[in-house]
């Protein structure tokens, strides 16, 4: 089964917040939507879930056109940033509510909830209220609820944004195991590019309600189609040299090399990041970021050089790639 969006759009007050958006996600594929805040990535997710109405285009789950169906009839499993657990119900009751509303019999409910609680390793927390759980545990309850939905499509809206960095790394493999192994199309929204690169089969970079580029993570990184994409992916951020002939040249920090001659630079400041160090340089081409070995003792003045093949060129007006 494939999730398919065809030129989907939504307008608020005569402004398109999602415009002419098309993509398809095959089963066992995870598409990650990234972009600056307010770019329309969460709105896209809400359109797929049926929480908001499309004013344009069609949404299909396989052969089924769901564009005008209410969320209850779409069978999507959705995980929210704030987990959206009901504070006055226990973990068990939170999981049970949806099943109950959908008319699942009581023995069946109990069997499925036990099974899912084992899966997310929360069997001993069944009778606790969400307020008694840690952030990671709440997140797993939210995942369990989405899994209980027997969903056609999984939608995850910044599921890890409320967790600290360490917990995120722990939960990522778990999330992959629980959701991605279901073999259903998954759409994942995040603003964290590390998370995007880690989870995605494909990444769609969104800006102003439109897809700027959609591709595999590696291809996006190596072949950005615009300055926006090049700057959005990759940390430390890509270096832009002084514009020449209405063209912007950009080079990744890891592609800069030291040499005996080349562009003369002055060291402004340095950040030691453990396994690498980040150097901030000043040159006639403007400020540069550069990655170096952690043990490297950087002199006050130095020369850097780079291979011309590693340089991306963008049109200064449109920001589109020219070579």
């Amino acid at each position: 089964m494939t999730l398919e969006l065809q030129s989907v759009g939504r307008q608020i007050n005569a402004k398109w917040i999602v415009h002419d958006l098309s993509f398809s996600v095959k089963q066992d594929e995870c598409l990650v939507l990234v972009g600056p805040s307010g770019c329309g990535k969460s709105s896209t997710l809400r359109l797929i879930a049926g929480l908001d109405r499309c004013q344009q285009g069609t949404i299909k789950f396989g052969n089924r056109d769901v564009t005008h169906l209410p969320p209850s009839e779409r069978a999507v499993g959705m995980v929210f940033q704030s987990y959206a657990l009901l504070p006055h119900l226990t973990v068990y009751e939170n999981l049970e509510l949806g099943l109950r509303i959908r008319g699942v019999r009581i023995e069946e409910r109990s069997r499925r909830i036990q099974h899912i609680l084992d899966l997310v390793q929360l069997a001993d927390r069944a009778n606790h209220r969400p307020s008694a759980l840690s952030g990671g545990q709440r997140q797993r309850v939210a995942l369990a609820r989405a899994l209980l939905r027997n969903a056609m499509v999984y939608l995850l809206d910044e599921p890890m944004s409320n967790l600290d960095a360490q917990l995120r790394e722990q939960i990522r493999p778990e999330l992959r195991r629980l959701i991605l192994d279901q073999g259903k199309p998954t759409v994942y929204v995040t603003h964290d590019q590390n998370e995007a690169l880690a989870m995605a089969n494909k990444i769609a970079i969104i800006n102003n309600g439109e897809i700027v580029q959609l591709d595999t993570p590696i291809h996006l990184y190596n072949n950005p189609n615009s300055l926006f994409v090049a700057q959005f992916l990759g940390r430390p951020q890509i270096n832009c040299l002084k514009p020449r002939d209405h063209q912007i040249q950009a080079i990744r920090p890891e592609d800069l090399k030291f040499s005996e001659s080349g562009l003369p630079c002055r060291l402004v400041s340095r950040e030691w990041l453990g396994n690498t160090q980040l150097l901030y340089l000043e040159s006639a081409e403007g400020g540069l970021r550069m990655v170096a070995e952690p043990s490297f003792q950087c002199p006050e003045r130095l020369f850097v050089t780079w291979q011309q093949s590693k340089v991306f060129r963008f049109d200064a007006k449109t920001g589109l790639r020219t070579s």
Partner: peptide, 20 residues
């Protein structure tokens, strides 16, 4: 988001009044 989650779960407006 509580509202959204409930709608995704299939709760009608009356259900949401009752449960949320």
């Amino acid at each position: 988001e509580l509202d959204d989650a409930a709608r995704v779960e299939g709760l009608t407006l009356i259900n949401r009044f009752r449960w949320i």
